[in-house]
């Protein structure tokens, strides 16, 4: 798992959070892990295939997730924000991963991603967090921290 594959996710997360939610993210830490198992209460899992393969897991504490969604839907009622919470976070994860794949793919490669899958907690029966060298990128924001676990490698 090379650091150069991580930089597109850092750049994309900062850009997308600013554009979509008007939230400033600051990268605070990078750690190496053995798998993509997230630390927080709500996570979005996206698989990667094509020229790269692996998994990216976005993870938020619930109170941070709620504040992020309120910034994405500032004119919506609290009830509507709650209704769209998982979907709004899924769209963020999808756009960040999509933007990162543009940076990774260049002019010739194709990288595909799976539809986002929402996991509450860390114990999911329906999706497996992969055992693969993972770089965990931590960001801080005015609403709390975001964690992006990146476990991808190029397909030879």
């Amino acid at each position: 798992m090379q650091v150069e594959y991580v930089n597109p996710f850092i750049t994309s997360a900062i850009e997308i959070f600013e554009k979509v939610a008007n939230i400033e993210l600051k990268k605070s830490n990078l750690t190496l892990k053995k798998n993509t198992t997230p630390s927080n209460e709500i996570s979005i899992v996206i698989g990667v295939t094509g020229a790269f393969e692996g998994q990216v897991v976005y993870s938020f504490k619930m109170h941070t997730a709620e504040r992020v969604v309120s910034c994405m839907m500032p004119n919506a009622s609290a009830e509507k924000q709650k209704l769209y919470l998982e979907s709004a976070l899924s769209s963020m994860a999808n756009m960040i991963t999509g933007r990162a794949t543009i940076l990774l793919s260049g002019k010739e490669k194709r990288i595909y991603i799976t539809p986002p899958y929402v996991v509450l907690g860390t114990d999911s029966k329906d999706v497996k967090f992969i055992e693969f060298p993972t770089i965990c990128i931590e960001f801080t924001s005015r609403f709390g921290t975001l964690e992006i676990n990146v476990a991808i490698k190029p397909v030879e």
């Binding site: 979509v20 756009m95 794949t101 543009i102 010739e108 490669k109």
Partner: peptide
Amino acid sequence: CSALGQHQLVIDAIKAGAKDFVIKP
């Protein structure tokens, strides 16, 4: 309208018959 705005995928979409490609966000 997709987040996957990679060069080759935009070409694939237009070749498939799409009139335009809008990148999310």
